[in-house]
Design a protein around this nucleic acid. Sequence first.
RNA 1: GCCUCAUUAGCUCAGUUGGUUAGAGCGGCGGACUGUUAAUCCGUAGGUCCAAGGUUCAAGUCCUUGAUGAGGCGCCA
Length: 521
Amino acid sequence: MFSFFGRPEIQFCRTFALLFKNTPAAPSGHPILISELFPMKRIKIAEILRTEPVQTRVQVKGWVKAFRNNQFIALNDGSCAANLQIVVDFENTDPALLDRIKFGAAIGASGQLIESQGKGQRVELKAEEVVVYGDCNPEQYPLQPKRHSLEYLREHAHLRFRTNTFAAVFRVRHALAFAIHQFFNDRGFCYLHTPVITASDAEGAGEMFRVTTLPLERVPRTETGEIDFSLDFFERPTNLTVSGQLEAELAALALGEVYTFGPTFRAENSNTTRHLAEFWMIEPEVAFADLTDNMDLAEAMLRYVAAYALEHCTDDLKILEDRLIEEEKSKPQDQRSGLTLTEKLRFVVDNRFERLTYTEAIDILKNSNPNKKGKFQYPIEGWGADLQSEHERYLVEKHFKKPVILTNYPAAIKAFYMRLDEPRDGVPGPTVSAMDILFPGIGEIVGGSQREERLEVLRQKMRDMHIPEDELSWYLDTRRFGSCPHAGFGLGFERLVQFVTGMGNIRDVIAFPRYPGSAEF
RNA sequence: GCCUCAUUAGCUCAGUUGGUUAGAGCGGCGGACUGUUAAUCCGUAGGUCCAAGGUUCAAGUCCUUGAUGAGGCGCCA
């Protein structure tokens, strides 16, 4: 045992002679150079476990998950859920170095990859060299090698990536984002970046965050006492976007199929497990498409990404599934889901969503047991009322027991840009070609519609809903010049990640959640 | 924004109708063991009981206010 290159953190557990003996001779008979032996390229653990190159020398770098028996390091480098076992020859290693191998420390190890002599893993790394890059003092480190509550980890969100659960969540989140891009790319969609800062406050989708460089302590006023936005950066009031839809429509009416995938901001005081002030939304927009095309697209996309996750995130989903099984054990019998996470995803991939109109849904709800027995907090009075989440949950979780697409809502409870339907028999009032996709446990995951492409119908609806026409004249130009039927929807990305990972709180599927009273990290 | 519940050791939690010196598991530290798998075994330290005020002979326990967190509802994706 001696130090090398004067670096005390590098300890060689074997001699040069041993190294040479274990290294195959160069094919040409040339002398083997030291530089061929030592400078090794780091290999990711995911690749090692995939290819299992036993009897080769490898170098790995990662973080210590466990150090058992003063001998076995469980090393994780984030490339996959699994750890690589590093076996240290503790009898021939500096005790001072062994003492630095703590839970959470960043280390590198190199040596021979061999078939494991113990149970529990197929291969392991017989360490010839261990380097500590970053120590981790266990008395101060907030994480411990044990289960922490999600609430605790949320308060230490800067460190929670290091837990098995959150590493899995964020690898799955990445896979889903990639799958969405792949889905749309395969179908000829163009990825459109819409502005984050917008001057339009007429999109009808929630409260907005003001963007300004005006001094808040001394806001300039006009002669009439109003805020003088002509002195602001954009010389007009501006906000963070609540939707890229209107801009996406402009592009769709030239490029045919487009989608956005970007951050979205809602300044609503929403304190729930399904809302964030800053979230990511996917908004496809398709020219020459009607409501049925829209539903087909949304359903195909959701089934595609669920299948993608099942195929590409097997190990991570297993971790998340086991977590859920543990969590369910502490729940009362009647609140358990009955399906495992992968069974749930498989169900979505294999089964068509239930499609029905708002009017049909009202009939089902009106005649439902909970409504007759007065169990609903908001009893179904009749046609025209907005559905509450208890009603949506009844339809999805009790009545159909599968994802549901509700269509053709009353015009009065939906946005101005949704296409007015032809009157239908048995439908009491005017409806629009809207659709909401409802998922178990999450509620509305997709909201969309066929857009109103008829200029005069649209202008009339804007007047009815007090949307100022002059602010949206650019939007109306699409209807003035070469208008066509088109449709699109918005998918809440974090709600999708929630569904696929089984995480109950939306704040646990985004790296650093923003919600009322909280913008930490 | 509204309603309900919670806050006790580093973490997860127990703590009886208010009553002596507030406990456990895990984690930490020290030691033993050395093919382990949340390793095991022995020992040990660790507390402003969320904060402020109040009731009482006596408050972790009861009351008031506040802070933070969780769940539900509304708004929505």
